[in-house]
Write a protein that binds this DNA or RNA. Structure first.
Lengths: 350, 350
DNA sequence: AGATATTTTGCATTCGAATGCAATAATTCA
DNA sequence: TGAATTATTGCATTCGAATGCAAAATATCT
């Protein structure tokens, strides 16, 4: 015991290996036991005022902060949560991440960030996640069945964000992609549009598929047959490329363009205006999806469906925290309706 | 010892408290000691092939992953790094964060994210950071002298990102704000502009101040006297508001507008075009700073200075890792020149 | 083969805080 | 004041992996 203290003071003289202050150091200075120090930092523990004062004085003088790592080891609660997000440069995700981070922070939880380049590197991230004993995970990426099974096996709470597994019992918070898509289609058709171009999203994005499928279905339900669809990747560039593809595929540019997300819609608008000399919305109506910041910039004033990000992240955080407290809660899915934003990038039936 | 194993199997029958698989479990199944298991997971350790095979087989069958928390406690290396960022919705930071995250990840380091709302809540974040024993910190926020002293006291490596402390010996990676600003001014003046409006940034942003100061200085050096400056907050909205403020302050809108960042420049352009019926760049030249994605969208094609984000984050990560390996390395500052992007939002002398 | 050098393996301890239990101190009540 | 309660405190152990040291197992050489 004495040895330990001597080592410590030696270390302090050597700035290179300055050891952190521990509860034992505080205990020694305050002249109490280590347990007492521990209890003083545990809310609701049985500690006399005198004790608390002594300990806190010592703790402050030494600059003591409890070691969360050591605590986690024993309590099996790291107060860490992993957030897996696929591409942060998507304009949509920064807001999500920012909200998640703040909401977790408000609940005393820290966020371990896994920003994947594509939805590919997931496996490596998961391995890290297991090693770090996170209490739960928010995934805005797709997982394989095996990966999902691993979560169950380890009994690790998981909440999907905007990934909906129709056939699986998982926790998920989503925006109703299909509903929003139908709404957009309804409005465009009501405005009298008959010829449609659709710019899709990445192959591996569930969300893109949902929006795309719902759009097609609804168009057909409404008796629209003239539909030209091309693929995209959520980017600004793919909006312009998509317009060009559609033009090539179809001979001319149709009067209504539906893009699976705002960013590609913005790209499409710019291409229409600056490369094809078309007026939006006079010549061509364009709609997007997400309601990200730039969608309401004056240059675009996009007609789109805004995802209620704040409510969604709040739901996701709450849902995860509930499962962390009580892992046996049954899976739950919460689906939020998007908010229709009637911009001026599309003609509207008056 | 036997008791432990029995408890474990009991726990496994109760899915609610399923304990994670530990090195002891693997050791038992493989019929070796716990130390042996530990060594098998340590690269370069002295282990026979036979042993490694046995252990790995057992580990795989049990789904064992070393507990990073336990390891950290003993090795005093958490392999965690904190990244403190002020406002993620800034368009500039998502890219930075994404790069940092990937570069740390490539080096086997995990990122603990602290996304602050303003540069205010820093203190609370720091407290968490101390508790989590992170190996180092990247700060894209300002710190008080006391907070800085705390880093020194704890001997915790810290690298500032785009916060330059002229008078203090700290590690920092920055873009040369002043140089970029001067370059922009040079070009505008060379193009013949004589009347200037300037839209500033948040009071508490060092970067905004630097850009602003350099801009003013250079303008004066070049003999420009007609300067109207107003405040802003980096947002799209403040660009429009700034234009209006300038108009009110000055009677009319000057022929050149310098904004401290791209986002407000974009807001300014939109306001000029859609609220003030001005043409950009024919009537008014507008320049920004940062080189964020939207700056090269066709609608804006902003003349701006792009920060070499990839190189900067790479430098920051390298610098931090070096200090983690060797805390006694002296402080270092690396300043990168921005890349002048000649867009079409400003008239250029031909 | 026998002795020496070398590689593997296991034992025991350590990291720092939390907690059940028992001991002690402070209150309460008769 | 003394006994019975109740509130505090300390002791000892625990979490899971890493590591110095010594014991055991191999390999090398004469």
């Amino acid at each position: 015991m004495a040895g330990k203290n001597i080592d410590k003071s030696d270390a302090l003289n050597d700035p290179d290996n300055a050891r952190a202050v521990t509860s034992y150091d505080v205990a020694r200075v305050a002249g109490v036991s280590q347990s007492a120090v521990s209890r003083c930092f545990k809310p609701g523990a049985s500690v006399s005022k005198k004790m608390r004062d002594k300990v806190m004085k010592a703790a402050n003088s030494l600059g003591y902060e409890p070691n969360a790592i050591a605590r986690s080891l024993l309590t099996r609660r790291s107060n860490l949560v992993a957030v897996i997000i696929s591409n942060l440069t998507n304009l949509y995700y920064p807001e999500v991440l920012s909200q998640l981070s703040q909401q977790f922070s408000d609940r005393g939880i820290r966020v371990l960030l896994f920003a994947l380049e594509g939805e590919g590197k997931t496996e490596a991230a998961l391995q890290q996640i297991w090693q770090y004993q996170v209490d739960g995970v928010i995934a805005a990426v797709k997982l394989t069945d095996e990966q999902l099974a691993e979560f169950n096996r380890r009994n690790k709470p998981l909440v999907f964000y905007n990934r909906f597994y129709t056939s699986l019992a998982v926790n998920a918070v989503c925006c109703d992609q299909a509903e929003g898509a139908r709404h957009l289609v309804n409005d465009l058709v009501a405005a009298g549009h008959k010829r449609f171009g659709i710019i899709g999203g990445p192959e591996d994005s569930v969300v893109a598929h949902e929006r795309m499928a719902a759009t097609m279905d609804r168009l057909k339900e409404l008796g629209i047959a003239d539909i030209t669809s091309v693929s995209g990747d959520y980017s600004y560039e793919c909006g312009g490329a998509g317009i060009e593809d559609i033009r090539l595929k179809r001979g001319e540019i149709p009067e209504a363009i539906i893009c699976v997300n705002d960013l590609s819609a913005i790209g499409a608008i710019d291409a229409l205006r600056y490369s094809h000399s078309k007026k939006v919305p006079e010549d061509v109506s364009v709609v997007g999806f997400d309601g990200v910041g730039p969608s309401n910039w004056s240059s675009y004033d996009l007609t789109t469906v805004r995802q209620p990000v704040g409510r969604m992240t709040d739901a996701a955080v709450t849902m995860l925290m509930e499962r962390i407290e009580n892992p046996s809660l049954p899976p739950e899915k919460r689906v939020f309706s998007g908010i229709m934003i009637e911009g001026t990038s599309a003609k509207i039936s008056e």
